[in-house]
């Protein structure tokens, strides 16, 4: 009988000790003062902020460092205008293409597919449907349009301006043009860019017309 009571006590004791472990609550700390930051912690909750939320959008009429103003409006006309005249201000290099390719894998490939054929994993799993291929002739995919759509989003696609900065969006645009060229069986845009640099006068002329429009836009 005595042993029974003893066993009972042990079981109850171990049960209480085990039940004290709660993975929904953080553990004790030795000196909490040294753990908690003095300043406002990222994503902290403090009374001084509206909604007690430390994470806030920047004040109105302010720009973050390195931000460039994008003048095209988020309308159909803005998109058409960007498609027509907006040019990539950055030179196409192998390094930029590599970065663009990596960013494309992060942000775009889930829907648009690794090759840009519109068959990403979300499409094959039927979460998103009807993603067009970049090579679709009905959609005039040009760098300016790609940049515009990344910045504002279009129809069911959202804006990626909060996840990428200006240069990164252009790098992605370069990679998308590369994918389009590959889908159409054309040489990669790096080759075309290199070719135009050393090419005969006819080719130089065509690229020059593009460069002229860029220089016209930039001072605005």
């Amino acid at each position: 009988m005595k042993t029974l009571i003893n066993i009972g006590i042990v079981i109850i004791a171990s049960a209480t000790m085990v039940s004290c472990f709660n993975d929904k609550k953080p553990n004790y700390q030795y000196f909490p003062n040294m753990y908690a930051p003095v300043g406002y912690d990222a994503y902290g909750e403090y009374e001084v902020f509206p909604g007690q939320q430390e994470a806030m959008t920047p004040p109105e009429n302010t720009l973050s460092r390195g931000y460039t103003i994008y003048d095209y409006e988020n309308t159909t006309e803005g998109l058409e205008l960007a498609k027509a005249e907006l040019q990539n201000p950055y030179e196409v290099t192998e390094k930029d293409l590599a970065v663009g390719s990596q960013l494309y894998t992060f942000y775009c490939a889930v829907c648009h597919g690794d090759t840009g054929d519109g068959k990403g994993i979300l499409v094959t799993r039927e979460k998103f449907l009807g993603i067009p291929s970049y090579a679709d002739p009905a959609r005039n995919i040009v760098p300016g349009g790609i940049y515009h759509v990344q910045t504002y989003g279009l129809n069911a696609m959202g804006s990626y301006a909060s996840q990428t900065n200006e240069k990164e969006r252009w790098q992605i645009a370069m990679h998308v043009m590369d994918l389009k060229a590959a889908l159409n069986g054309e040489p990669s845009i790096l080759e075309t860019a290199l070719a135009t640099q050393t090419a005969d006068s006819t080719k130089v002329e065509t690229t020059n017309s593009g460069a002229n429009t860029t220089s016209e836009i930039e001072p605005k």
């Binding site: 929904k24 953080p26 889930v110 979300l122 979460k127």
Partner: peptide
């Protein structure tokens, strides 16, 4: 003490990393 290994709090919105990062392979 002070080690939070295994800490799994309840979030205000039940966001499943398994569905998003696992099944749908979002980076």
């Amino acid at each position: 003490v002070g080690v939070d290994q295994g800490y799994a709090p309840v979030q205000p919105i039940h966001y499943s990393h398994k569905i998003h990062a696992g099944d749908n392979q979002i980076d």
